[in-house]
Design a protein around this nucleic acid. Structure first.
Lengths: 231, 231
DNA sequence: CTGTATCCGTGTTGATACTG
DNA sequence: CAGTATCAACACGGATACAG
């Protein structure tokens, strides 16, 4: 059972794999199963525990989560690690190759955001909201704009800054940031991807912004949803 | 039944959708079903008929193909079109938004190519092989290298050239190209992604190359598979 | 030839309940 | 909290029959 790897031999018997040399087919074999990619998404910002993943993904039952974690561990996408001394908890974390799924995930997200079925009012996990900022931020930002940003999303702490036009996100205490956004992910999504100015969202109590509010507004202005064009 | 569109209302009842505002989840709702992305892949190089798609995707049964085509048509990813006057055949073609799936598909393919389970010897559709060239070609090509390339892959004709470091592919007669590659997709894949020089593949009868063979070798040299690194 | 509709066997999926 | 066991529902693929 030690150091078990997926082999080509397995591909024949394990399931109804596509058995196709094409990378697209292999990708769908590896992460096309239900919930798999969303689990990876939850791990993109760092290791998480079984219960944290489950809590973030409404509708995902425990046995399926177990199956997916096992499968993706064998595939080399993630690994389980036991935290040192006192914690003793075990966490799941992406391998280097697993982290490389960020690009495909973001490409899929940007594509899907153009769907007429895209509904911003649906629920959103804390991690998913933070990742959406990285995905959807307009990259053409002026290089002088390097705010120190804090977030408290549905209770989870995040810290972010703009590096090379991309949003670098960490799970870290937001205290001390120039501006701190707090609220539920869905409400913040409405704020960032809607058209109302920040003050409107604050007045309606959807979000709280502390610190440099004009700076926060400038950050919010970097976001807008693509419009869907018919062919 | 006319101009039927997918609606948020549908999302609740049609299936077990994720009901998540996250783009990743929506993408998996839209193209995460078995075979869906491979069908899109077959359409990336232009419209195809029902039988052509089915012929390219071994293991895909007719009723499933019908279901997927219906679903993706409702989602606005593809449409069916009836060819003019004499042909009368109907074809399926991607919408503009559907064509935008090229980027996610290529991102997934590049990622999957790094898997230890990646097996180049598995079968490959004609379209999949041509797309793999576009996906895997090393973009850092010198701007003077602009060959006129012809392909006859498992009977299908293609023509390609390098535009802005990317391979532009058309379904078109290869006659008259500077160099023409012909053979079965799997054999050509071994040639392009293996380490043997082109002459080796020709000697073993795996592929035929007509025209400017040194030019062909220079083109083949642009391809190599990424090696998998453990974390 | 191009699809569509139906039945059926099988494997996958997921909710509930349960164990360490 | 982490994970397993059981069972029901459904998706998939094969076969077949049928329509334009």
């Amino acid at each position: 059972m030690e150091s078990q790897k997926i082999t080509n031999n397995d591909l024949g018997k394990m399931r109804r794999w596509y058995r196709d040399a094409c990378g697209t087919a292999l990708a769908m074999d590896l992460i096309g199963e239900r919930w798999a990619l969303l689990i990876v998404r939850e791990l993109l910002l760092g290791p998480r525990r079984f219960g944290e993943i489950r809590g973030a993904l409404e509708g995902l039952s425990a046995n399926i989560l177990t199956q997916r974690l096992e499968g993706m561990e064998k595939a080399g996408i993630l690994r389980r690690r036991v935290l040192p001394s006192p914690a003793n908890a075990q966490v799941y974390e992406l391998t280097k190759w697993g982290r490389a799924l960020e690009e495909p995930i973001f490409a899929l997200s940007r594509w899907a955001a153009g769907s007429p079925a895209h509904d911003v009012t649906l629920p959103l996990s804390n991690t998913a909201f933070m990742l959406s900022l990285r995905t959807m931020m307009n990259a053409r930002t002026d290089p002088d704009f390097a705010p120190d940003l804090g977030f408290r999303i549905g209770g989870d702490p995040f810290r972010a800054r703009i590096v090379d036009g991309l949003l670098a996100i960490e799970r870290r205490d937001p205290e001390g940031a120039e501006v701190i956004f707090a609220g539920e992910p869905s409400k913040l999504a409405a704020t960032f991807y809607g058209r109302d100015p920040l003050t409107e969202s604050m007045r309606e109590g959807r979000v709280t912004v502390t610190g440099d509010v004009p700076l926060g507004q400038r950050f919010v202005d970097l976001f807008s949803l693509p419009t869907f064009e018919n062919d």
